[in-house]
Design a protein around this nucleic acid. Structure first.
Lengths: 201, 201
DNA sequence: GCTTGACTGAAATTGAAATTTGGTCAATAG
DNA sequence: CTATTGACCAAATTTCAATTTCAGTCAAGC
């Protein structure tokens, strides 16, 4: 087996190809043969990196969430940005990043959802908790600075996410959600409302 | 043709039967013959009240929303209840009424959604605007009383609804949404956060 | 005049044969 | 000796024709 770096590169290439093929064919019509051909490796080699087709799709989604969380953490780490502004931007990033990540799937999102429904619901739970952890930490910091009311940081973070969940492309495809600019406007408006809800006066 | 009262009664009976059969069979497996037999009238008579099977299912959903709006209006009309408390209860009512209305469908909600997706999306829009109108009027009243900040009442009402949308049984079945008591707790928590977001200090 | 259920065509279902595809592993390449 | 592969297999999916079901109609009857 190749060394770690090359291994990771192939894995990434497989997920890149998955993204392309999901957009073009949807989950059901994307075959492992297609995938291997697109990556330029043998079919068997796919299974050196993933144990099943399902796992490939799930890992592909995991990667989207990983990347999004990295952006959230980057915002959290910024100097010179107020906590409030950070939270606002994090909420917006969460919504728009996911919008942008699946924009090119148009209708095939439903196909993916239908096929992975149960597994995806379980992961959703995990993603949600991880995101709530990041947001919650920031709320806690705001409380220490005295700019936020004394509320349960994790529960409040969960509320922030819950409130913006219906703007995510989950049950509704990107097309059904509406214009990106509208989503952005609604998210910001909601973020402001929520932030004012925990602000100290 | 019978007089208006009897006509309305039959129509209601058809929708009652629809509710039972949707719960038992789901949309696709519910036949017009089943429906007529359950109501105790001839198949042709169904078509004296509805123009198609689709319209029956949509009217059934319309009725749920009508009943919910009646509850919202009843709360709005209460004397001796503070605006804030009214809004809190209205938000809770919206979520729980819809939860309760489809609780007995268990899995067959997906079936309905899949069959009526396009039409239902369009109505959803209408329902949303109507609900926003009711909530918005109350926010406006609160502004006149000076207890709320000067925000756009309709837009703010839309935010209230949007924020609680992910607690409604739409893409997620009642089972997937979780315990009723959890939904209730989350809704109230969110309502408090949102209300505080427009409150004057 | 109101209600009905037999009727119709279109759509869905069935079942069996043919094809495709997820996953494996012995053979091959390096 | 290890890393990679594609031929292979069972299972799933698709195809296609025959059959059945069903939404919607309308002439007959109450």
């Amino acid at each position: 087996m190749k060394n770690g770096v090359q291994r990771r590169e192939v894995r990434e290439a497989i997920l890149d190809a998955t993204d392309r093929l999901l957009a073009r064919y949807g989950y059901k019509k994307m075959t492992i043969d297609d995938l291997a051909a697109d990556v330029g490796i043998g079919k068997g080699s796919i299974y050196l990196h993933f144990s099943s087709k399902e796992e490939i799709a799930l890992s592909h989604i995991d990667r989207i969430i990983e990347r999004m969380k990295r952006q959230l953490n980057a915002i959290a780490a910024e100097k010179e940005t107020s906590i409030e502004e950070k939270l606002r931007r994090m909420i917006l990033t969460r919504v728009l990043f996911r919008f942008d990540s699946v924009q090119h799937y148009t209708q095939s999102l439903n196909d993916l959802l239908a096929a992975l429904r149960a597994k995806l619901l379980a992961r959703r739970e995990v993603y949600f908790q991880e995101e709530a952890g990041i947001i919650g930490a920031l709320i806690e910091e705001g409380q220490r600075q005295g700019i936020f009311e004394k509320v349960d940081p994790t529960k409040t973070a969960e509320m922030f996410l819950l409130a913006t969940n219906s703007l995510l492309p989950y049950s509704l495809s990107v097309k059904e959600l509406g214009e990106r600019s509208e989503i952005e406007e609604k998210t910001l408006r909601l973020a402001d409302l929520l932030l004012r809800g925990i602000k100290r006066f």
